[in-house]
């Protein structure tokens, strides 16, 4: 008999987290890790001369053509794929993948991490669906007993925008994800008519979720290649 190996905790967590959306008919798409400046920012309504551009610190990749960067969010891939493949609404898409921010690292900050982005485009999809669905997802992942609240927040790609907080048994509110109704500029750049369609969209950094789930205290462990860590999963 052979002994089994180990699947990385992010792989395991991803499967559990994605299952919710797979069971609701979402298509899973993945994009490139190097993405143009346009799809990272401009297409998502983050203009050059605006302070919202400073919200993400970016790794710029040397490029002969137009400026390119390691994607700062999987939303960049989402936008490109929907536009280039001419995907027609209504649709439900989920984009998991590796993302990068040029940040100093410590136990709770990492320059390389993983996101799950999602978008649902339909005629009458609204903030009620957005909040309900994400709450339901959080409960599936962290258990029925958690408390959830949403707060208004600015993300240039959505309007209205929100952040969702979760309270686990420790009684502390934790910021879990950013979401909102797709901004008309963003829909237009995806090739979708914002006069006819509206969309809910969100982005979630799942390394932090896996930390909570498995009680990991240092986010840098995920990419540490340390077998003492990996072999516990």
């Amino acid at each position: 008999m052979k002994t089994k190996g180990n699947l990385h905790p992010i792989t395991q967590f991803n499967r559990e987290a994605l299952k919710y959306f797979i069971n609701r008919g979402f298509k899973i798409l993945e994009g490139n890790e190097i993405e143009s400046e346009w799809y990272n920012f401009d297409a998502l309504n983050v203009p050059t001369d605006h302070p919202s551009r400073d919200l993400q610190d970016t790794f710029w990749v040397k490029s002969k053509k137009t400026p390119e960067a390691l994607r700062v969010h999987t939303t960049a891939s989402e936008s490109r794929i929907i536009f280039e493949r001419k995907i027609k609404p209504p649709f439900k898409i989920i984009v998991p993948g590796r993302t990068f921010r040029n940040e100093r690292t410590d136990a709770t900050h990492e320059h390389t991490f993983n996101q799950i982005d999602g978008i649902v485009v339909d005629k009458n999809i609204n903030m009620g669906h957005l909040i309900g669905t994400l709450e339901d997802w959080m409960k599936t992942v962290f258990g029925k007993d958690i408390k959830i609240r949403t707060r208004p927040h600015l993300f240039p790609f959505v309007e209205p925008g929100l952040e969702m907080d979760v309270m686990l048994s420790d009684g502390k509110w934790r910021e879990m994800l950013g979401a909102g109704m797709a901004h008309p500029v963003v829909l237009k750049n995806m090739g979708i008519d914002p006069e006819k369609w509206q969309a809910i969209m969100w982005g979630a950094g799942i390394d932090r979720y896996a930390m909570i789930k498995y009680k990991i205290r240092d986010i840098r462990k995920f990419h540490s290649q340390d077998l003492r860590f990996i072999k516990q999963f």
């Binding site: 008919g25 609204n126 669906h129 309900g132 949403t150 929100l162």
Partner: peptide, 27 residues
């Protein structure tokens, strides 16, 4: 849409009626 956010903010995000996506056959 910016005006809509103002309305939602004052109404209270947490007072919005929650809706859910239906289960469907996986693709």
């Amino acid at each position: 849409q910016d005006i809509a956010e103002e309305v939602a903010r004052k109404f209270g995000y947490n007072n919005i009626r929650k809706l859910y996506l239906k289960k469907e056959k996986p693709l």
